[in-house]
């Protein structure tokens, strides 16, 4: 195993993040604070209690998940797209590095960034609403698993994209709408039956509910279904990455 290479890629990616740390952290913290002001303080007061939890506390897991999903996809896709765009990918392709080590370096760094952002958002939320975490180990496991899985998805997206527009398609047009419609700000039990059935086809519902279960012990779907869904998506992303390196898709001529 070429651990020096994994470290080199990881440090390179983290250094890039640290160069714009203020912007990287300030932006999600600001948007989360705005969500709490609008949904927590302004609208939340009218919402009462959902499944035994105040509305402000109820939206905390959804908001963390919203940031984790978008940041994971953005960071990981940008990480691999940038050397492809600048041409610097030649160095990675010609180095004695296995595909596993390349993925570990890029996706490992992107996952670290997402987890740090998730932790910062949790701390920011604490300034606005009191919340509890009933099962911190499961919460951490969900956080890491979701961040890693969506960073893998972002990596695949970054390899697939051949222009900047395609790079922003998934976070803007897929991840954000699915998260908003996936119960980040409401329980899908509050929806009419037809829309509740439709919502069950949205994979993000399972991520948010599994994460919320680790906080409050309550969710719209069983926690094992959530775990199965995220593991299934992880397996799909791993298969795509394996295929990319086996065929050299959009990496090698």
């Amino acid at each position: 195993m070429n651990l020096h290479a994994v470290q080199a890629i990881y440090h390179f990616e983290m250094a890039r993040w640290f160069r714009t740390l203020g912007q990287s952290l300030f932006s999600p913290v600001l948007s989360t604070s705005l969500y709490f002001i609008v949904f927590g303080a302004a609208i939340g007061g009218q919402m009462g209690v959902i499944e035994g939890v105040s509305y402000g506390a109820f939206i905390v897991p959804g908001l963390v998940m919203l940031s984790i999903l978008t940041e994971s996809v953005s960071n990981a896709s940008f990480g691999i797209y940038m050397p492809k765009w600048s041409g610097a990918i030649y160095e990675i392709l010609s180095a004695p590095v296995s595909p596993f080590e390349v993925v570990l370096g890029f996706v490992g760094a992107a996952t670290t960034k997402s987890i740090v952002i998730g932790a910062v958002i949790l701390m920011t939320a604490r300034l606005f609403v009191p919340y509890e975490i009933q099962n911190p180990i499961l919460m951490a496991a969900f956080l890491v698993l979701t961040a890693f899985t969506f960073c893998l998805f972002g990596f695949v997206l970054g390899v697939w994209a051949d222009n900047w527009e395609k790079l922003s398609i998934a976070p803007l047009l897929i991840i954000t709408p699915l998260t908003f419609l996936g119960g980040a700000f409401y329980s899908i039990g509050m929806l009419p039956e037809f829309w509740r059935t439709v919502a069950l086809f949205n994979p993000v519902v399972y991520l948010i509910n599994g994460f919320r279960w680790s906080f409050y012990g309550t969710a719209d779907v069983p926690v094992w279904v959530s775990l199965t869904m995220i593991t299934g998506f992880l397996a799909l992303c791993l298969s795509l990455v394996w295929w990319i390196f086996r065929t050299g898709y959009r990496l090698k001529a």
């Binding site: 080199a8 890629i9 440090h11 600048s86 160095e91 180095a95």
Partner: peptide, 23 residues
Amino acid sequence: EVSTDSFETVWATMRFSRGLFGL
């Protein structure tokens, strides 16, 4: 082509290249 991350320093990119090749 000159292909590298232009926001990095010379020293950082040299260390990156050496590490990438497993040294």
